[in-house]
């Protein structure tokens, strides 16, 4: 038995609903319409899904062209099983607020950690500051 090499294997997945996790952490859900040899993707009827805890919200985004290198993960969504998810869908405003709260909490925790490390005479560069240099 043989299979398609490289991105050619993605061709079988065209016109199916896919979830794409990007390198910046965003989650996109949409119909895969076109690919190329670099696994650049064209997503159609895309929504950006934000998960916070057990809640999630969808922001409609339309057509997305994703540069292949930014894809962390890509998988087909089973349309039949999609409905019976234990997660609860909430409005965009609500999920954005939840996200904001979550991020704030995370930052606080990070700050505390950094403070504690500083007191012990240690310091680590944060990942995002590393990126800049």
């Amino acid at each position: 038995m043989n299979y398609m090499p490289g991105t050619a294997s993605l061709i079988e997945d065209i016109d199916k609903k896919h979830l794409v996790l990007l390198r910046d952490g965003r989650t996109l859900i949409g119909f895969l319409r076109s690919i190329d040899q670099f696994a650049n993707l064209v997503l159609h009827q895309t929504v950006e899904r934000i998960h916070v805890g057990k809640k999630y919200g969808d922001i409609p985004r339309g057509i997305f062209i994703v540069r292949g290198e930014n894809v962390v993960l890509l998988g087909e969504i089973d349309l039949e099983k999609e409905i019976d998810t234990p997660l609860q869908q909430v409005s965009i405003e609500e999920i954005l607020e939840e996200q904001r709260v979550e991020q704030q909490a995370k930052q606080e925790a990070e700050k505390l950690k950094l403070q504690a490390l500083k007191e012990r005479g240690l310091s680590i560069l944060r990942a995002d500051t590393l990126d800049e240099y």
Partner: peptide, 15 residues
């Protein structure tokens, strides 16, 4: 939207 010809092109390239 991606025609069979385009698909074949990608497959060919990968092969």
């Amino acid at each position: 939207i991606m025609s069979a010809k385009e698909k074949a092109w990608v497959i060919r390239l990968q092969m």
